[in-house]
Amino acid sequence: MTLTQRIVTIALCALATLITRFLPFLVFSPQRPTPKYIQYLGKALPAAIFGMLVIYCLKNVSLFTGSHGLPELLAIAATAAIHLWKRQMLLSVAGGTVFYMILVQWVF
């Protein structure tokens, strides 16, 4: 690729990203009332999105080879347990992550 072609490639990636981030705000301007259906989506989507993001993080975990997803499963259980116990986002994330690091570096 020439330098110009590289710049165009990066610019197109940036443009596509900007479109996906700005589009909802451009289509539904604050001056006009947002359609009821979109308001509903705004409320119903987040819980679904977080479910999707959890799976997205785990998408490359293989259940049939290597450690069979066991470290991930155990670390998620630990994260959830700490969170239900102490209700401190930071503590749950730190605890779960350290536990996962121990598992993948020393146990599995």
Binding site: A47, A48, L53, V54, A75, I76, V93, G96
Partner: peptide, 29 residues
């Protein structure tokens, strides 16, 4: 894994905020 743990925690919080879990289950499923 901090990223995964973060999403798990937020998912849990979201889960407990709702009386029914349809939307969370729709996302996961």
């Amino acid at each position: 894994f901090a990223m995964t743990a973060l999403f798990v925690v937020i998912f849990l919080d979201q889960w407990q905020k709702e009386s029914r879990h349809w939307t969370a289950l729709i996302g996961l499923g």
